[in-house]
Structures are given as structure tokens and as C-alpha cells.
Write a protein that binds this DNA or RNA. Sequence first.
RNA 1: GGACGCGUAGCUCAGUGGGAGAGCACCUCGUUGACAUCGAGGGGGUCGCAAGUUCAAUCCUUGCCGCGUCCACCA
Length: 891
Amino acid sequence: MLEKTFDPKSVEPRLYRAWEESGVFSPDAVLEKNPEAEAFTIVIPPPNVTGSLHIGHALNNTLQDVLTRFERMRGKAALWLPGTDHAGIATQMVVERQLAEQGNIGRRDMGREAFVEKVWEWKAQSGGQIVNQLRRLGASCDWSRERFTLDAGLSAAVRKVFVRLYKEGLIYRDKRLVNWDPHFQTAISDLEVEQREVDGQYWHFAYPLDDGTGEVVVATTRPETMLGDTAVAVHPDDERYTSLIGKLVRLPIVGRLIPIVADDYADPEKGSGAVKITPAHDFNDFQVGKRHDLEAINILDEFGRLNANAPEEFRGLDRFDARKRIVERMEELGLLRGIEKTRHMVPHGDRSGAVIEPYLTDQWYVDAHTLAQPALKAVEEGRTVFEPRHWEKTYFEWLRNIEPWCISRQLWWGHRIPAWYGPDGHLFVEENEEEAQAAAQIHYGEEDVSLRRDEDVLDTWFSSGLWPFSTLGWPEETDDLKRFYPTDILVTSFDIIFFWVARMMMMGLHFTGEVPFERVFINALVRDAKGQKMSKSKGNVVDPLGLVDKYGADALRFTMVALSGPNRDIKLSEQRIEGYRNFGTKLWNAARFCQMNECVRVEGFDPAGVTQTINKWIRGETAKTAAEVTRAIEACAFDDAAGALYRFIWNVFCDWYLELAKPILNGDDGAAQEETRATAAWVLDECLKLLHPVMPFITEELWDKTAEFGGPRNGFLMTAQWPRLPDSYIDAAAEAEIGWLIELVSEIRSIRAEMNVPPSARAPLTLSGASEATRARLTRHRDLIVTLGRLSEVREADEAAAGTVPFVVGEATGALAIAQFIDLAAEKARLTKEIASHAGDIERTAKKLGNADFVARAPEEVVEENRERLAEAEAAKAKLEAALARLATVS
RNA sequence: GGACGCGUAGCUCAGUGGGAGAGCACCUCGUUGACAUCGAGGGGGUCGCAAGUUCAAUCCUUGCCGCGUCCACCA
């Protein structure tokens, strides 16, 4: 006998282990039996190796697992390829912090090799926890194919890609302004910069004209940058300044003579209309500098301190100290013309939180513009489709305005750039040192050349960009690559469309000639119950593993699926999870009911052959549900799938079918009983299959437990065949009949409740005005109606008698003889209200039908539908009016 | 400044050119052997506002109001 409730805590780990050990997560299990099986592939968005499972992962990975389990059950060689990302900055940060906590010497003292070794040690010990957390969620990843972005194979792929892009001219070195993170002392890409609004000030400085005829006032929020000023720009059409163009100002403190140039960049509307130009420390100024051939003077070192290009007194000062100092000095010089408070956006490093400095350095760049073109075309042509579709606009927007991608990082943890410099600085970009040596020997014509390898590593996203094909063995022509690439669908969130999706498209198309995935499903962002973004600082972060502990993985999974509608945000409340836990319990108890009533699977049972109306009906409802769930998952309409499952299992199977089956199961018609038992068992099995992708644990457990009384199963539910039920299972006559039955019982219940008839009171029901078909139905289901309506008997009558409570079902009038419970006033009110409601309906419909344009222009079936509605409403109203009249007579 | 999205029941959200839906919450009743993590019933909405298209608009178009997100911007 099943327990009263399902116990996820004991079942989940046991089942997961059983699945994993049996090898069913791997597509190889399918391919062994059917080498021709169609492939289905998802590569996981590799979580950071430093990460732990957050609610966004729970959502994202649940959806991937639903798709994978679904396709696996449909007989495909389904591969969900897992792995983790080495996460350059994040990991280096974690390990550095840990070294500090343990009182170790720092990274720099330790040296590169030793430090990298430490990171690998850390990875072996505590890295990749998240992978086990995914297991707790029930993720059916093929762990035998697990990859790491820094493993040997992926490293080889990275080197190959780098060298090829370099030789094609799509990777190059350049000296430009980069976003410099003084905390980590590395360049970062535009995407890693986060604009934050902060309090700031404008300082207005006067720069004296060299000829002594006056001054020019400029404003800045970064006074220290004035030390690197090499011009002042004014708009060519700004009449206030036309006479000054070409003149020189003497830069205060520094004493450098700098020109006043005319440039469209200067906006007469802003500030004084004159703007200081610091080409080495401002992106706009850099462009101005290029146009006017200005010197770019770098005044900072890699820590953000003032360097030797600054006057003596400022050297070595932190940029923010220097800022104060500059303001003081300008004030002393009498050149501070004003201070203005402001709130403005300031760039910060997304990892370090440090204020980013535009900084002039040599870095490696990818010609993203060139690579973007095929990536744009592929989506424009629909070779890759985003869902929801509107995200394509975001993708286009970014790719059409893409800037060169700075890929070098001054870190130690990552893919070291395969570039070597000869003694004269000549570059050799090769996949390994031997090849670089060989190239150098050819170049220099000497035997042994001493080469120095580039110190930098690559942006983590460079290797992530290769993920869909590098994980499958590229550049080798592996069987996996042939079979599983391009992948079918990528499931990810919108915040990495630029970082990751776009880069995979660029790299995938360039190196394989094919799109890396045919569909991109953008999942929602999980927020707290109030709709706020979860963040550690707000303290509203929900721990998915805590929820798994409390409610079970299935409940969390169902919640994620049920909330995955077309919206961009998901507001997660615990109440919702609780509700879906209850749903699992409901299913569990339905199985328990089946067990108690010996609803046992019958080998060779064919639902097509059932004869009982309720069995024909539930067979059709099951088929409809299977079709809907299939359609919904195929379309990534996850909420629809969850809704269809919930409604069918709870509101159809449990609320009605099992209730309707009770009289038969307890009755004495042996054949009907046998058929109903077999049907109930069959429906339960179909429920388990259909629900399995969303709630794998409880369904697998029930699959196993029901075998104890239903005979052994042929393998896991996980590998059972997905229901494919023919439309012929739907029987219109049975549907109409059960629909009528449900309506009748509902009416009876409704009246009983409204009249406060005690459940123990059994009342007789009469039915008048019934057609022959209805009378036949009545005969067939008399026992059912009596039981579910808690009636004493059901009679046919010529008309509803006085002292009864009437209601309308179809063409017939039912009447409950519950005179002793009738509150005349309440009953009068009820009838009046219902009559009014019909009257309203009649009025609206009649008006519509009275409109000649409507009758002439609306489709015929709509007109006909309205005519029927009008007739029905009029008939019902008439019956209720008659009842009201009788009521008046009685009183 | 540019782009995108959203305003439907108290809350969270589905939905459709032709009679407004679900879950939760709320109210009433209920210990009939699957289930109180439950059952039966009920109340509750001029579908943000305005105009337009249409025989017909919650749905399509435009404008407005409100909310949110992303991108750009440190004169």
C-alpha cells in the first residue's frame, strides 16, 4: 500500500542515482538500440565553476531538462551536454581571496605558475559544486560528456580558433582606449562595464589664454584628467568662441600650451560650450584627438595612480586623491570658477565594482563587425529563431552597432594567448611553442631564437563562444560533432544574448559554416514575490536548494514550468510552490486510489475497445491532453503544458473520472468493473508519462510502485515511450453525455449548497421535459446521479412540482424536492437573479440579431450560434419564470 | 536620447475580432475509507484612459497616462 504522501527527501537521491548508474542519461543508450535515432541536442549554458545554484539556474535548467526528457521519451538520441566555465576573473578572485584568508603569500609573490596550480587545486577540491546541485534538481545531463572550458580539448579548440582568426586578419593587436579595471589591473570588454548612477560634481575651471587676453572656462567631473589635457574644443559655429579658435591656452598646474580647436563634438548647449580634451582618458576625446592630431598623454598607471607624466607633486597619488588635490590647487590659483552637484552615470567593473578608467594600452581585438554579418544574416533568414521572437530585435540592435571586441585580459587564469614575440618584437601566432619556434626560425633564418610568450589570457567569453562545437570534439571530425551539431535549441536568459549567444553565433558560423543552434529560447528573469530583482544586498535571494529540501524538486520544477509564460519576468512566491507540491500529492493519492480499487494494468489492454461511456470519455480526454502537452512542449509554451497537465490530472481525472468510476468499481457489473479498472490504470500510466518531463521523481516512483501491484515494468518511466494517442480516441457522443452528466451533478450540488441542505439529507430529483436521448442517459447513469447528487431517487415527471427547487439542464428541467430546506425569500432571490441574468443575455443577443448589418456580414455560424443562444436563454428563462410563479402560489 | 516590454478579479498571471478565465487569497458548508498537502459551493472585473477601423474591440491602429528592462551618456 502506498503511503499517504510522497517523500521526496528519500526518493529523489535514490532515483537519481539509479538513473545515472544505468546510463539512461546518455544518448548512447538509445543509439545502441536504434542507431538511426534522430539526434536532439542541448548544450548547457555552462555555469561558472565558482558558482552555486541560484533560482535562475533552477528555471533555466528545469526547462532544458523538460525538453531533453520529452525528446528522449519520443525516442530521440537526446543529448544534454553539461559543463562548467572557468570564469577568468571570478575564479581568480575567489582563489586570491582564499589565499589571503589562509594567510598565504599573494598571487604576485607566488608567481604565475604556482598561482595557476593553486587554482587547479581549488577547482579539484571545491570547484564545480554546482554540478551536483544540478543533480538534485533532477537534471538528466549526460555526465559522461561533461566538459570544462579550460580542459585540454577545449583549450586546443581555443588555440586553433585564435590562430585561424589571426591569420585571417580577424584578430589583431591595437593601441586604443580600453575599459581598464584598476582593481584587477586588466582590460575588460564594453559588456563587462556597468553604468551606475552616482552623486558627482562638476568643477568649472578657467584655463587662461596664453596671450593674456582672457580665459576659457571648461567643466569636468574628473578634475585629475586635466593633467592629460592636450586641447580645448569649441563648436565651429559657436560665435562666442570663433575668435579664439587656433589660439593657445596655458594648462594650469602643468604649464603646457594647448590649442583651442574647432570640433563638432563640443556642444554649445552644454556647460560653457568649451570642453577640455583628454585623448588618453576619454573615449570621445580620443576621437577628437585623432581628428586634430593631438598627443594622447597617459597620466595613470595600471593601479589607477598618477604616473610620471603627471607633475611631481601628483605622482603616485591615487586618482581620487589626485582629484581633491587638483581642485585645491585650482582654487589656490584662483581658477576654480564654480562647483555644481550632479547625479551622473559612472562606469564600474561588473566584477570588481571599481570605477573603470578609459586607458590607453595595447590589446588584442576581434574584428567583430566582420564576424557579425553572417550572424545577422542567419537570424534574418530564420536559420536560427529566437523565442519569444521579439528578442531578435535586441540581438540585431547590438550586432548592427558592434564595436571591436577586446579579448585580452591581464589575468593569469584563462587561456593564454598563443602569441610569441621575437627579440625585435616580431609576432608569431601559432598553436604551440614548437610551431612558433619553427616560424621564427624561418623568419629570422637562424637556429635558436629566444621567444617571449604574450602574458595575457583571453576573455572567458572567447572560449564560451565555441561551446556548442568545442564540447562535441571540434576541431576533430568526431562522431558526436557529426551527429549532434548543430544543436537543436539553446535555453538561456536575455542578459547574455550579447555576451554569449551572439558570440556563439559568430564563432559557430565562422568555424563550422552552420548555425550553432536552430532555436534560442529566452527564459524569464526570476524575481521575488514583490517583483524585485533578487540580490544579496536586498536579502531577498531565494535559495532553490532550500526549496527543494522543503517541497521537493518536482514541486519547484513544476512551478518553474508553470510560470514560464510569455512574460519577461517571473514573480516567485513560495505559496505557489506549495500549491504544486499539493498537486503532486493529489496525483500520488489518485494512484493510491487506483491501488486500493485494484485498478491494475492489463497487458494488451486496448483503450479503443472500451464500451463504458465514462471510459470512452476519459480515453478521449487523455488523448486531447497528450496532444496539447506535446504541442506545448514542442513550442516551448511551458506554461500551457503545465496548465494542461494540472487541469487534466486534477480537474478531470481526479475530480470527475475517479468519482464517476466509484459506483462502477463498487458495483456488481463485473464486465464494467473490469473494464473500468483497466482504463483507470491505463489513464494513470499516461498521466505519469505526460507529467514525467516536468515532475520526474514522483512519476518515476509511482511507475515503480504501481509495478508492485500491476506487474513489473519494462525499464524506467524515463525511457518509456511518449504517448501518441489517435484522435479516434475522442468520442463526441461520450463527450456530450459526460458533459451533460457533469452539468447535472454540478447543478444539484450547487442548489444543495445554496439551500444549505445537509450532506446527510437525501432528496428525490424529478426531471421533466426531457428528450428521449436525455431519458436514455438518465437510465444509463441513474446510480451515478443518485450517488454523486446524494439523492434518494430520480424520477421522470411531467412538470416540476411545487415545493421543489428547479434548475435547467439542456432542454430539461430538474427539480429537487427539498421543501423542508427551502427558504422562500432566498429561493425567490435566486430565481430572480437567474432570470435577470438570462434576460440580460436575451437582450444583448436579440439586439445583435436585430441588427441587419450583423446578420448580413457576420459569418453564418456566428449568426446561427447567436440564434441558438437566444432560443436557449428564452427557454430557460421561461422555465424559471414558471417556477417563480409556482413559488408565489405556495407562499 | 535610442530600443523593447507590460497595464485583465484583492494578489500572481493566462487569453481571444463574436457569450470575461485559472491559481492563490477570501466567505459558507463538509471527519461518505484516494487525498484536510482534501472535498462541495460562493462572492468578486466599465480587460489603464481616449479616439479610430469594424456589423462587432479586452483583442487591431493611433495618441495619452502609468510601470519596468536593456543600450548610450562621467561638459
